[in-house]
Design a protein around this nucleic acid. Structure first.
Lengths: 303, 303
DNA sequence: CATCATCAAAACAATAAGTTATGATTTATT
DNA sequence: AATAAATCATAACTTATTGTTTTGATGATG
């Protein structure tokens, strides 16, 4: 084992403890007694520290000493390190349900719907910090597997041994058209002539609507005419409201659009909806603070 | 050596390092290679940590695992501890003259005079934090000896081997009377009839004036009539300005009083002044940030 | 189902730490 | 000023701790 020159190692905390006691008592022998060791032990600890940090920690004069600058810095470091450790010990013992970061990932539509409720909760409990990530299904799954998020809400059942899923409700999908086609008889050909405004989950949603037999002139795997793509949820409906195309979105996302009166929702013979699954990592225990979020999600999405 | 139950000891940082690497790689063997140790060593480190913290750190399932809550907290702790240590290593290497706390102690009069200059410096260098303590001479000496302050300005020479002193200038002492006695012929009897307004250094100052042979009717150890006491420097001159008594103060303190025009300064035949000594602990090296302060004090007080 | 990979356990070797004994200075006392 | 007491440093030695080797059980992989 070769010893690296610029030592990577952290300060040995036994030596540090000895040094701190020495800095407080200013007395080797007293320190030794306090720490139930012998005086030469104290000397050795200090020397080892000085060797490791490559700088003297004590200005010795006669049998007395003062701390050097490095010594004072080391002492200050020791105090901080002790405080940090105390904090750790405390935090391990209790799992405060109103303290800490909560990482949740879901679709943009759900994020817009859920976020106000979460923020309200956060404003009542300042110790809570919320990190809500809007992302496509597959990214959510990956983030969960890599421990980058803790709770995910996805629309597809996953068959990974690593994950657990619970059904929490479903969201209706709506076929959204410009207002001007409100009473139009909608066919797949008509939609294709208008053009599809795509978004992260757009194609998946559209496929569900099409495969539900809502259009007699649609055959599987037929080409869809795509007129644009936007991944900002709040802006997906803009081109639709201006007559530039159609799209498919969850009802909750449509309802939040500022100019809903510029849109029309096509009446579908076969209603289409997406099941929502609250997804977590199977072998991972979540802190108590997540309980409120799980319950709230079930309450808000359940039907 | 008996082992305490509620362990006082901090987390062994070698074990911690192993744990952190394991948390990152999620792989015992890989961690062992990375840290130039063997796989059983990694296992042992984790077990020792779990024993010390009295809680499992890993949820094991098959040959895989997830961190428990305690595990995640320990990991977060490790990150902070590493950051702290990096900070230490950097701070030991360099002695930033514009960063850190500066502790200075002096008399109230000097504090009022010096503080504005210090604050101006601090406002130009936000990393500097100033702690200026106004205290009597003896307290300043004690604070120095106990490392509670770093620079002291005192008016008396100390003969402690522990201290070094350098003369930095002197301050004239003024006998301050109510305006109405401006042209009065001042005798000790007259002063006694008026009454002395005492303050922390008041008696010491008065004694210097009296012992300088300024009053033919004063004999040593004669009783002084004390009319009041106040230890807020800015308020000492209030009773004087209202005609209630006299006092002795350094010229700099008198000049700062808001209603100087309500006061008169007695013309003394034998001028009296106090020598000022910048005092530090002999064997103690001060950080570079103190250099500016020492120079500024010399500049401001030198004559 | 066989092979490989991974983690755990026990026995042992290597390393590190702490203690005793001793020496050199300094401080306190007479 | 001389002597005694106290304090810290050094070296040799003992003990404790740590890490490795060897071996074994269990789960993943083709």
């Amino acid at each position: 084992m070769q010893l690296a020159e610029g030592d990577n190692h952290m300060v040995n905390q036994k030596w540090l403890l000895t040094f701190m006691s020495l800095a407080e008592t200013r007395h080797f022998t007293l320190t030794a007694e306090k720490l139930h060791m012998t005086q030469p032990g104290v000397s050795q600890h200090i020397h080892k520290l000085e060797a490791q940090l490559q700088t003297p920690l004590l200005h010795r004069y006669g049998k007395q000493f003062e701390l050097t600058l490095a010594g004072e810095k080391l002492y200050a470091y020791g105090l901080q390190a002790q405080a940090l450790h105390t904090e750790l010990a405390q935090s391990i013992e209790l799992d405060d349900p109103l303290q800490g970061q909560c990482r949740i990932a879901c679709s943009g539509a759900l994020a817009m719907y859920l976020y106000p409720f979460f923020l309200n909760y956060q404003s009542r409990h300042q110790g809570i910090s919320i990190s809500l990530e809007a992302a496509p299904n597959q990214n959510i799954i990956n983030d969960l597997l890599e421990n980058k998020t803790d709770i995910g809400i996805v629309t597809q059942e996953q068959f990974s041994e690593q994950l657990t899923q619970t059904y929490v409700g479903e969201q209706a999908l709506q076929l959204v058209l410009p207002k001007q086609y409100e009473n139009e008889n909608i066919s797949f050909d008509f939609l294709n002539s208008l053009g599809f405004i795509n978004h992260p989950d757009g194609f998946h949603f559209l496929e569900k609507v099409l495969k539900a037999n809502n259009f007699s002139d649609y055959k599987n795997r037929e080409n869809v005419h795509i007129k644009g793509y936007i991944n900002q949820l709040s802006q997906i409906l803009s081109p639709v409201s201006k007559g530039l195309g159609y799209t498919v979105l969850p009802a909750s996302a449509v309802a939040q659009f500022e100019s809903v009166d510029m849109l029309s929702i096509a009446a579908l013979e076969f209603k289409v909806s997406e099941k929502l699954y609250l997804t977590k990592k199977r072998h991972r225990e979540l802190p108590a603070r997540y309980q409120w979020f799980e319950q709230k999600i079930k309450d808000l999405l359940g039907n």
